[in-house]
Simulated assay, not measured.
Amino acid sequence: MDECYEIFLSELGPQFSKVQPSDIEIAKFEGHLPQKLLEYWRLYGWGGYYDGLFWLVNPEDYASVVQAWLKDTAIENKEDCLAIARTAFGRTFLWNKKTGQNVTIVPLDSQIITSPPNKTVLAGDDTIPLQSFLIEKKSGSS
Protein backbone atom coordinates (compact mmCIF):
# COMPACT_ATOMS: atom_id res chain seq x y z
CA MET A 1 0.00 0.00 0.00
CA ASP A 2 1.42 3.37 -0.93
CA GLU A 3 1.78 6.24 1.53
CA CYS A 4 -1.05 8.30 0.02
CA TYR A 5 -3.60 5.52 0.37
CA GLU A 6 -2.39 4.86 3.92
CA ILE A 7 -3.01 8.53 4.81
CA PHE A 8 -6.41 8.39 3.11
CA LEU A 9 -7.37 5.32 5.17
CA SER A 10 -6.00 6.84 8.38
CA GLU A 11 -8.38 9.78 7.87
CA LEU A 12 -11.47 7.97 6.59
CA GLY A 13 -11.12 4.51 8.08
CA PRO A 14 -11.48 1.11 6.49
CA GLN A 15 -13.39 0.55 3.29
CA PHE A 16 -16.76 -1.21 3.26
CA SER A 17 -19.31 -2.25 0.61
CA LYS A 18 -16.40 -2.93 -1.71
CA VAL A 19 -17.11 -3.65 -5.37
CA GLN A 20 -14.12 -5.02 -7.25
CA PRO A 21 -14.19 -3.78 -10.85
CA SER A 22 -13.10 -6.11 -13.61
CA ASP A 23 -10.11 -5.35 -15.80
CA ILE A 24 -12.58 -4.60 -18.61
CA GLU A 25 -14.44 -2.02 -16.47
CA ILE A 26 -11.16 -0.34 -15.52
CA ALA A 27 -9.84 -0.38 -19.10
CA LYS A 28 -12.78 1.82 -20.20
CA PHE A 29 -11.18 4.70 -18.30
CA GLU A 30 -7.59 4.31 -19.52
CA GLY A 31 -6.47 7.69 -20.82
CA HIS A 32 -9.48 9.43 -19.25
CA LEU A 33 -8.63 9.17 -15.55
CA PRO A 34 -5.34 9.17 -13.63
CA GLN A 35 -3.36 5.94 -13.87
CA LYS A 36 -2.93 6.07 -10.09
CA LEU A 37 -6.71 6.07 -9.62
CA LEU A 38 -7.02 3.05 -11.91
CA GLU A 39 -4.29 1.36 -9.88
CA TYR A 40 -6.22 2.06 -6.66
CA TRP A 41 -9.34 0.59 -8.27
CA ARG A 42 -7.41 -2.55 -9.24
CA LEU A 43 -6.08 -2.95 -5.70
CA TYR A 44 -8.97 -1.68 -3.57
CA GLY A 45 -12.03 -1.40 -5.81
CA TRP A 46 -14.90 1.02 -5.40
CA GLY A 47 -16.56 1.45 -2.02
CA GLY A 48 -17.47 3.53 0.99
CA TYR A 49 -15.38 5.05 3.75
CA TYR A 50 -16.03 6.86 7.02
CA ASP A 51 -19.29 5.05 7.71
CA GLY A 52 -20.60 5.89 4.24
CA LEU A 53 -19.86 9.61 4.23
CA PHE A 54 -17.33 9.28 1.35
CA TRP A 55 -17.28 6.90 -1.62
CA LEU A 56 -14.93 6.13 -4.50
CA VAL A 57 -17.29 5.31 -7.35
CA ASN A 58 -17.70 3.78 -10.77
CA PRO A 59 -18.04 6.76 -13.14
CA GLU A 60 -20.55 4.88 -15.30
CA ASP A 61 -23.01 4.79 -12.39
CA TYR A 62 -23.08 8.61 -12.36
CA ALA A 63 -22.83 9.39 -16.09
CA SER A 64 -26.51 10.37 -16.51
CA VAL A 65 -26.46 12.51 -13.36
CA VAL A 66 -23.29 14.30 -14.49
CA GLN A 67 -24.74 14.85 -17.96
CA ALA A 68 -27.95 16.32 -16.53
CA TRP A 69 -26.12 18.68 -14.18
CA LEU A 70 -23.62 19.90 -16.76
CA LYS A 71 -25.98 20.05 -19.73
CA ASP A 72 -26.59 23.81 -19.83
CA THR A 73 -23.24 24.94 -18.39
CA ALA A 74 -20.33 26.63 -20.14
CA ILE A 75 -17.88 24.01 -18.84
CA GLU A 76 -15.47 23.01 -21.60
CA ASN A 77 -15.25 19.36 -22.61
CA LYS A 78 -18.06 18.50 -20.21
CA GLU A 79 -18.43 15.12 -21.91
CA ASP A 80 -14.98 14.30 -20.47
CA CYS A 81 -16.02 15.05 -16.86
CA LEU A 82 -16.17 11.75 -15.01
CA ALA A 83 -17.40 11.17 -11.47
CA ILE A 84 -14.68 9.65 -9.30
CA ALA A 85 -16.10 10.15 -5.80
CA ARG A 86 -19.17 11.30 -3.90
CA THR A 87 -20.31 12.06 -0.39
CA ALA A 88 -23.35 10.74 1.44
CA PHE A 89 -24.97 14.12 0.81
CA GLY A 90 -24.68 13.90 -2.96
CA ARG A 91 -21.62 16.10 -3.47
CA THR A 92 -20.05 14.53 -6.55
CA PHE A 93 -16.43 15.06 -7.55
CA LEU A 94 -15.61 15.04 -11.27
CA TRP A 95 -12.25 14.69 -13.01
CA ASN A 96 -11.50 16.09 -16.46
CA LYS A 97 -8.12 14.98 -17.75
CA LYS A 98 -8.40 16.96 -21.01
CA THR A 99 -8.89 20.36 -19.38
CA GLY A 100 -7.13 19.69 -16.07
CA GLN A 101 -10.22 21.07 -14.39
CA ASN A 102 -12.04 19.48 -11.50
CA VAL A 103 -15.75 20.03 -11.07
CA THR A 104 -17.83 19.46 -7.96
CA ILE A 105 -21.59 19.10 -8.09
CA VAL A 106 -23.25 20.23 -4.84
CA PRO A 107 -26.94 19.30 -5.15
CA LEU A 108 -27.93 20.48 -1.64
CA ASP A 109 -26.96 24.03 -2.64
CA SER A 110 -27.82 23.68 -6.35
CA GLN A 111 -24.22 24.58 -7.19
CA ILE A 112 -21.50 23.52 -9.56
CA ILE A 113 -18.01 24.45 -8.39
CA THR A 114 -15.15 24.46 -10.88
CA SER A 115 -11.44 24.69 -10.30
CA PRO A 116 -8.99 26.45 -12.58
CA PRO A 117 -7.17 24.10 -14.95
CA ASN A 118 -4.38 22.25 -13.18
CA LYS A 119 -1.13 22.79 -15.09
CA THR A 120 0.37 19.58 -13.72
CA VAL A 121 -2.54 17.53 -15.10
CA LEU A 122 -2.35 19.33 -18.43
CA ALA A 123 1.37 18.51 -18.57
CA GLY A 124 0.47 14.83 -18.28
CA ASP A 125 1.27 14.17 -14.61
CA ASP A 126 -1.96 13.66 -12.69
CA THR A 127 -0.64 11.46 -9.86
CA ILE A 128 0.10 14.25 -7.37
CA PRO A 129 -3.18 16.13 -8.01
CA LEU A 130 -5.13 12.89 -7.54
CA GLN A 131 -3.26 11.98 -4.37
CA SER A 132 -3.75 15.53 -3.05
CA PHE A 133 -7.49 15.19 -3.67
CA LEU A 134 -7.59 11.95 -1.63
CA ILE A 135 -5.37 13.20 1.19
CA GLU A 136 -7.44 16.38 1.54
CA LYS A 137 -10.50 14.33 2.43
CA LYS A 138 -10.86 14.57 6.19
CA SER A 139 -13.17 12.62 8.43
CA GLY A 140 -14.92 15.81 9.50
CA SER A 141 -15.59 17.18 6.00
CA SER A 142 -18.21 16.35 3.40
Rank of each mutant, 00 (worst) to 15 (best):
M1W: 01
M1T: 03
D2V: 00
C4L: 01
C4F: 02
C4T: 09
Y5I: 01
E6Y: 07
I7M: 07
F8Y: 04
F8H: 01
F8D: 00
L9F: 06
S10V: 04
L12N: 11
L12G: 03
P14N: 15
F16K: 12
F16P: 00
P21L: 09
S22L: 06
I26D: 11
K28H: 13
H32S: 09
L33T: 02
L33Q: 01
Q35W: 07
Q35T: 11
K36I: 08
L37W: 06
L38Q: 01
L38N: 02
E39D: 13
E39F: 10
W41P: 08
L43K: 10
G47P: 01
G52R: 14
V57R: 01
N58L: 10
S64C: 12
S64D: 15
V65A: 10
A74F: 07
N77C: 08
C81I: 00
L82N: 06
L82R: 12
I84R: 05
A88K: 04
A88T: 00
G90V: 07
G90E: 08
T92N: 05
K98M: 05
G100I: 00
I105P: 04
V106K: 08
V106M: 09
I112C: 03
I112T: 04
T114A: 12
S115V: 05
N118A: 09
N118V: 04
K119D: 12
T120D: 12
G124D: 06
G124W: 05
D125T: 13
D126W: 10
Q131C: 12
S132E: 09
I135M: 09
E136N: 15
K138Y: 14
S141F: 15
